[in-house]
């Protein structure tokens, strides 16, 4: 997929590269007052390889959804670059965007509003195919194929969204995203609105599809436990910035950033023997407003080891000498969750 404006594919084989992504909202006049700009995303960098799953984790309001939306082009970034398969998304023309979106698609969070209630499932799935110029007979076959892929009976194609359960609707959304054989799926909290038992089913489906088609996933979530077995790598976001990036093992077993450690301490523990032995970290204070982010390191207002320089200088995302993950902290250190483990 190359065109006159694309750069040659990156040497490290990255399918998606995000550099210095910034997104500010507001700052324009509202009536006749000028409320401060909301700094939803304040400089985000990461890469994603083909076939890989990157989890983007953080609490509500940290900017992870906004990041996803900027990548797919639903929002225009205030600054920064998004390079997908060699193409710059942020400056792409509408026609280029349409081509990009054949290879990169999006799965929405809310199964109750991501499907047009007045269109049959068949029509919803057929739409991207029809718009890409596929012929009617081919469309019918492909829609049936897609429905089978996500575990739905093709005969139910003439039903309406309200006749399906939440989990099934989410499957339909996934099927729609797969319609044109994309290389990358951005999943914006795809299971957050589902019951826990259904969550596992959908995640299993996503894993199967990934194995089958070699898809890359950007999995946005607020719950670490949800992404714990599907993700290859994890990026943790706080207040618009990435604070730590690493492999699944590095994040879950050797987290360095205090925020990541706090998140992990809240994850339910499987092993009953280990329960009650961990120290639950409770962060002090409230989440600051994105309109007025703290100076320096944005986490310093709630961090238990914040020093003077944390307030003044924002830390950069860098590799600590002995570890392999990237962390943005002035005082990163490992902190074992379990005080002692009884053998």
């Amino acid at each position: 997929m190359t065109g006159p404006l694309t750069a040659p594919a990156a040497a490290d084989g990255a399918l998606l590269r995000v550099e210095g992504l910034v997104k500010h909202y507001g700052g324009a006049r509202h009536g006749f007052a000028t409320p401060p700009a909301i700094q939803a995303v304040g400089g985000v960098d990461f890469t994603l390889k083909a076939g890989e799953t990157l989890g983007l984790v953080g609490e509500s309001g940290c900017g992870k959804s906004t990041t996803g939306r900027c990548i797919i082009g639903l929002e225009r970034p205030t600054a920064g670059r998004v390079v997908f398969d060699g193409q710059d998304v942020a400056t792409a023309s509408p026609r280029q965007l349409k081509a990009i979106r054949r290879d990169m698609q999006y799965v929405f969070q809310d199964p109750y509003s991501s499907l047009n209630p007045l269109m049959t499932v068949f029509s919803t799935l057929a739409e991207p195919l029809y718009l890409s110029g596929m012929r009617r007979n081919d469309i019918r076959d492909r829609v049936a194929e897609l429905m089978r892929l996500v575990g739905l009976a093709p005969e139910h194609g003439n039903r309406f969204p309200h006749e399906f359960s939440g989990g099934q609707r989410q499957r339909i959304g996934i099927a729609r995203a797969l319609a044109l054989n994309p290389k990358l799926l951005i999943l914006d909290e795809p299971v957050s609105a589902l019951d826990v038992s259904i969550q596992a089913q959908v995640i299993n489906l996503l894993e199967d599809l990934q194995d089958q088609f070699g898809l890359a996933y950007l999995f946005i979530a607020h719950d670490l436990s949800v992404i714990s077995h599907i993700c290859d790598r994890v990026a943790v976001m706080y207040l618009g910035r990435i604070v730590e990036v690493g492999t699944r093992e590095e994040i879950f077993e050797r987290a360095l950033h205090p925020y990541t450690q706090a998140l992990l301490s809240a994850v339910p523990i499987d092993d009953p023997d280990l329960r009650g032995k961990t120290q639950r970290i409770v962060l002090s204070g409230d989440l600051p407003s994105p309109a007025r982010p703290p100076s320096g390191c944005r986490f310093h207002t709630r961090c238990w080891k914040a020093q003077a320089n944390c307030k003044q200088t924002p830390p950069t995302l860098a590799r600590m000498h002995s570890q392999s993950q990237l962390v943005a902290c002035h005082y990163p250190e490992e902190r074992p969750l379990v005080a002692t483990i009884q053998a």
């Binding site: 639903l74 349409k98 979106r101 999006y106 929405f108 499907l115 919803t124 991207p128």
Partner: peptide, 10 residues
Amino acid sequence: EFVEAAILAG
């Protein structure tokens, strides 16, 4: 969301 999905579908 379904409006945005339609836009994304082209």
